[in-house]
C-alpha cells in the first residue's frame, strides 16, 4: 500500500503500534512480576515494580493448594478426546458434503449452519440434564460430550475438501477403491493443514471454555484448568502473588502451543472470516 512511506511516517506508525503492544503485554508482565513478590511487596506504597528476589514459593504453594496435576490431566484428556472425535467425524461429514452427491445432503448442511449461528447457551441446560441422567457428572466424559462432533469443524473442513479436485475420486474409483478408501487414503492426507487448524481451534475453545466445566464438574479433582483457576479466586481474595502464580501456571500450556504453532493459529483464523 505505502511504498513511499517516509521515515517520519514509519516512526509514527511504530510508535502507535508499540504503545498498543505495551497495552497488550503489560497485564501479562504484571502477572509474572506479581507472581514473584511477597504479599508485602505486592501492596507496598510507593509500588515496587520488581520483587527483591523472585519468590518461587508462591508457585509451589498454589500448586499444593489446588490439584493442578488433575487440572492438567483433565484438560489434556478433554482436549485429546475432543480432537480425535470431532476431527474424524467432521472430516467424514465434510468430505461427504463436498465430494459426494446424495439426497439429504443439503438438509444436513443446513443443520450444520444452524448450529453455528445459534448462541451456545441455549444448548447448555439440556446438555447438562443429559449428562446428569447418564450419571456422568464429575467425569472426564462430561467435559468431552458437547465437543464430540463439531458443526464448525464440518464447515471449516468442507472448505478444504472443496478446493481439492474431483478427478482424484474418479481416478481412484476406476482403480477399484471404495469410497472409504478414497476418503481415508487420498483426500484426508491432502486436507492435513485443515485438520491441524481444526485441532488447534478445538484445543483453544475447549481450553478457554469456562461455563460448561464449571457446571458439570463441581468436584475439584475433576475440574479443568480454566474452572479450577476460577475456583481459586474465592478462597484467596487478597493473596495476589499466589493468585498470579496460579494464573501463570494456567496460561503456560497454551502459550507454549501458541509459540510452536503460531503461523497455524493465524492462518486458521484468517481462513475462517470474510468472504
Amino acid at each position: 500500500m505505502h511504498k513511499d512511506l517516509n521515515v517520519k511516517t514509519k516512526t509514527l506508525i511504530h510508535v502507535i503500534l508499540i504503545i498498543g503492544a505495551i497495552g497488550m503485554v503489560l497485564p501479562f508482565v504484571w502477572m509474572i512480576l506479581t507472581s514473584g513478590k511477597t504479599v508485602g511487596e505486592s501492596i507496598s506504597i510507593p509500588p515496587q515494580i520488581f520483587p527483591e528476589s523472585f519468590r518461587w514459593q508462591n508457585y509451589s504453594k498454589v500448586w499444593n493448594v489446588l490439584p493442578f496435576v488433575s487440572f492438567f490431566i483433565n484438560t489434556g484428556l478433554m482436549i485429546f478426546f475432543r480432537i480425535i472425535s470431532s476431527t474424524l467425524f467432521s472430516a467424514m461429514a465434510a468430505f461427504a458434503v463436498a465430494k459426494l452427491d446424495f439426497p439429504g445432503k443439503n438438509i444436513f448442511f443446513m443443520i450444520v449452519l444452524t448450529q453455528m449461528m445459534i448462541p451456545a447457551q441455549i444448548f447448555l441446560t439440556p446438555q447438562y440434564l443429559l449428562v446428569q441422567n447418564l450419571g456422568l457428572l464429575n467425569t472426564v466424559s462430561a467435559l468431552v460430550i458437547p465437543g464430540v462432533v463439531s458443526a464448525f469443524g464440518t464447515f471449516l473442513l468442507r472448505q478444504f475438501f472443496m478446493k481439492l479436485p474431483d478427478e482424484l475420486m474418479e481416478a481412484a474409483t476406476i482403480d477399484g477403491a471404495n469410497i472409504w478408501q478414497i476418503f481415508y487414503k487420498i483426500y484426508l492426507p491432502l486436507a492435513k493443514s485443515g485438520l491441524i487448524s481444526l485441532a488447534i481451534f478445538t484445543s483453544l475453545f475447549a481450553y478457554k471454555d469456562l461455563m460448561w466445566p464449571l457446571i458439570v464438574n463441581m468436584s475439584q479433582n475433576k475440574m479443568t484448568l480454566s474452572a479450577g483457576l476460577a475456583s481459586l479466586q474465592g478462597q484467596y481474595a487478597t493473596n495476589y502473588p499466589e493468585l498470579m502464580a496460579g494464573s501463570v501456571i494456567a496460561i503456560i500450556p497454551m502459550v507454549i502451543l501458541y509459540v510452536i504453532f503460531q503461523k497455524r493459529f493465524i492462518q486458521g483464523i484468517a481462513s475462517t472470516g470474510g468472504k
Binding site: 498498543g20 497485564p27 502477572m31 478457554k208 483457576l229 479466586q233 493468585l243 498470579m244 494464573s247
Partner: peptide
C-alpha cells in the same frame, strides 16, 4: 506485533479476569 496483539486471545479467561481484577 501480530504475535503480541493476539496474546490475550490465547489466555484462559479466568487468568485474564484474575489479572485485570488485580
Amino acid at each position: 506485533y501480530r504475535t503480541l496483539y493476539f496474546l490475550p486471545m490465547i489466555a484462559a479467561p479466568a487468568a485474564v479476569a484474575m489479572v485485570w481484577r488485580w
